[in-house]
C-alpha cells in the first residue's frame, strides 16, 4: 500500500542574498553621492564638447536666470581647512566693508547669528540692504522669497567704473579678498568663477555679467555646460 506522499515545498524564498546585494548597493550610493544642492532657479545649461569638469571646491558660481536675475554660490576648499561655512561668513563681513566704502552712512551690521545663518546657505541673491531681513525669515519663507518675483536678485547693471562698483562687483571683490587664498588663486587662474545660465537666456543678459567681470579684471572664467559628444 504505497501511499503517494506529496512533498511539501517551502514557499518562502531565502532573502539573505538579496539583502546582501541591496546593502552593497546602498553603501555604494551612500559613499559616492553628493547631494543636489537646491538652487533658486533651475537652469538647463547649453551643450558643449568641452570635457573639463566643474571644480567642486574653491568656486564662485554665478547663477543667471533667463530674466536676468543673478544669484551667487560660494564653495570652500575640498578638505576641512577652509570650509564653505568659514568662507561664506568671511565673505559677508567683507561685503559689508566693501559696501560701506561707497555708502559710508549705511547702517549695515549683522549679528553673529545672522552670519551663521548666511554661512549655511548654498545660494543667495538679495540686495544687501534686504539681506538682514531675508536672513531672519523662516527657512521655507527664505527660499520662497529668493524665487519670488519681487526679489531682484543681486543688483547688477552695466558699469565699467571699478571705483564705483555695483553690488555684484562688490561681492566679486569680497570673494577675491576672502580668507581663502585658494579661492583667490583659482579666480586668477580662471577656474574660480563659473557662469551658469540657461540655454534660452538672451545674450544681452549674459553679456551684462561678463562685462561686470571684465570690469573687475576677472577676464578669465568658465561657462558651465552639459556634455555633448563630438561627432568625431
Amino acid at each position: 500500500m504505497g501511499k503517494v506522499k506529496i512533498k511539501k515545498k517551502e514557499t518562502r524564498i531565502d532573502m539573505t542574498a538579496m539583502s546582501d546585494v541591496t546593502v552593497l548597493l546602498l553603501t555604494f550610493f551612500m559613499l559616492t553621492s553628493t547631494f543636489l544642492q537646491k538652487e533658486p532657479v533651475t537652469v538647463i545649461t547649453p551643450p558643449s564638447v568641452s570635457e573639463d569638469k566643474v571644480p567642486d571646491a574653491n568656486l564662485l558660481s554665478v547663477l543667471v536666470s533667463p530674466e536676468g536675475k543673478v544669484y551667487l554660490e560660494v564653495l570652500g576648499s575640498k578638505d576641512s581647512t577652509m570650509k564653505s561655512e568659514t568662507v561664506r561668513a568671511d565673505l559677508l563681513k567683507n561685503m559689508v566693508a566693501e559696501y560701506k566704502k561707497t555708502h559710508p552712512s549705511a547702517n549695515l551690521a549683522f549679528t553673529n547669528k545672522e552670519i551663521e545663518t548666511f554661512s549655511k546657505l548654498n545660494a543667495f541673491g538679495v540686495p544687501i540692504t534686504k539681506m538682514k531681513e531675508w536672513l531672519n525669515l523662516e527657512p521655507d519663507q527664505r527660499d520662497k522669497f529668493l524665487e519670488s518675483e519681487q526679489n531682484p536678485g543681486v543688483p547688477i547693471n552695466m558699469n565699467e567704473d571699478p571705483n564705483n562698483p555695483n553690488e555684484f562687483q562688490m561681492w566679486i571683490r569680497a570673494a577675491y579678498n576672502s580668507v581663502n587664498p585658494e579661492l583667490q588663486e583659482s579666480m586668477v587662474k580662471g577656474r574660480g568663477i563659473a557662469i551658469k545660465a540657461d540655454q534660452t537666456t538672451p545674450y544681452s543678459v549674459v553679456n551684462v555679467v561678463m562685462d561686470n567681470l571684465q570690469t573687475m579684471k576677472m577676464n578669465k572664467f568658465t561657462l558651465m555646460t552639459a556634455l555633448k559628444t563630438a561627432e568625431d
Partner: peptide, 23 residues
C-alpha cells in the same frame, strides 16, 4: 537605494574656459 539614486548627481557639469580682454 531609490532615495540615494534620486538625490545623487552622477554627472558633473562640464565647463568651457574663456578669456576676455580687459575693459
Amino acid at each position: 537605494i531609490t532615495f540615494f539614486m534620486l538625490c545623487t548627481t552622477m554627472i558633473k557639469s562640464q565647463t568651457l574656459q574663456i578669456a576676455l580682454p580687459t575693459n
